[in-house]
Design a protein around this nucleic acid. Structure first.
Lengths: 236, 236
DNA sequence: GCTTTGTCGATTGTCGACAACATACAATTT
DNA sequence: AAATTGTATGTTGTCGACAATCGACAAAGC
């Protein structure tokens, strides 16, 4: 029974634990958008890369309609741009846009910090993603560190208890994630990245608004070493 | 030649001033989205109103594909929501969402004020829309007042010189516009609405950050008399 | 040789049809 | 009478085809 395939078969035939949970339907357009988004924000599809409907439809073995709709989803994510009648491509990154993206992110995260402290919100929930980050960093696992980082920040935004802020942050975080994947900075030790989050937690716990805001501002400040040319050229 | 139809005909036949400017192509989906958006943000289509692709396609004499795509545009505008396999409707308005919408708007406009003052930006451009608003208010023309108000605020955001902020503000302003149209508050004199903008201009001109921020914060604060039930019931 | 025109192939935008899904209501069962 | 099942209808999701547009390249003209 250690054979994975046989394991699945055994589960399907095992009436003692039937899986009768609701079946989630996901339209093709959503599935396609998820895959393309994943490719974009991990840097697999580069800024400027052309998205050709017919090619994607053939490659993914679907018709063009859901491809079109998926691309439109990515357009609303801010990851793709369309020129009518001409085509669609992964949105290029400019220094200006990177700067602006990080500035908006900073605005949102500082707002979250302010709301958490003003609302006297318990920030215990931040410890889990923080611990996950430290663990990943110590194991040299960059991907898990990035995932933990995202969980940390999303938890923080959730704690601000403002649905529109969360939605707006989610949207911009895709771009942030893409930028960070493309930048792929190997110069900062992973452990430093992880442990940088702890002082923020402490300031929040102490309700020290000024310190929390300063720490978060510093933590989310715009990167100023971004070179778009290097990113387009460097497929690594 | 004072007859508008004949005037157009004369222009078309008048080779002395041919119109050879670039022809702008607008895909159907964009045209449809524009019309639907207009209907939504002016309150003609109510929150909760169901959007049926087949009916809209028939009514507008197009096929369903551009309708679907147009609706998706409106979804990314935040004006429409989709439940997969079930349908699409104009997004309902909740008190929470109205509050949050105005809070985010405030965040953006205060950021613009900060950037303008920090950058020493000339705000002369705000006078034109302001004057237009006063003129409209004195003429009792609510629509022109609203249009002028929008121009005032968009100009302000433009002066902040931050593309992502402008884009984000544009997006949220649609919802703001819709909320204001639905609220249709007749209690405040139009002239007061218009003239409220002048102290903001003055504070910006004087580079008085504290005053400008306070004025803008007050100007954009969340409405707290919003009743979603009344809006759905009141088709006026 | 350079510029302009024409043709072709690839792609995008839209169309109408089919399959899949959801809901309302009638018919049947308990 | 209430609950369950079956059927019909309307709508959404996807498909493949046609029309419109674009760009590359060859051919023709200067």
């Amino acid at each position: 029974m250690s054979d994975p395939v046989s394991g699945q078969m055994a589960q399907a035939l095992d009436a003692s634990t039937p899986d009768l949970s609701p079946i989630e339907q996901t339209p093709l357009k959503v599935q396609i958008a998820d895959r393309l988004r994943r490719a974009i924000i991990t840097g697999k599809m580069r800024p400027g890369a052309v998205l050709v409907e017919t090619a994607l439809a053939e490659q993914m073995n679907v018709s063009r309609a859901p491809i079109r709709e998926a691309i439109q989803i990515l357009e609303s994510d801010g990851l793709v741009e369309t020129v009518a009648y001409k085509g669609k491509r992964v949105k290029p990154l400019t220094v200006r846009e990177v700067t602006e993206t990080f500035e908006m992110r900073q605005l949102y995260e500082v707002l979250a910090v302010r709301r958490i402290i003003a609302g006297g919100v318990d920030v215990q929930a931040l410890h889990r993603p923080y611990a996950d980050m430290v663990e990943a960093a110590e194991a040299g696992d960059r991907e898990s560190l990035v995932a933990g980082d995202e969980r940390f920040h999303r938890t923080l935004i959730r704690l601000a208890d403002h649905d529109l802020l969360l939605q707006t942050w989610n949207s911009i975080y895709m771009r942030v994630h893409q930028i960070m994947a493309l930048r792929n900075d190997r110069k900062v030790p992973l452990v430093d990245i992880a442990t940088n989050h702890l002082p923020i937690i402490h300031a929040l716990e102490k309700r020290d608004l000024e310190k929390a805001v300063a720490l978060m501002s510093e933590h989310t400040r715009a990167l100023n070493d971004f070179d778009p040319a290097r990113i387009v050229q460097d497929p690594a």
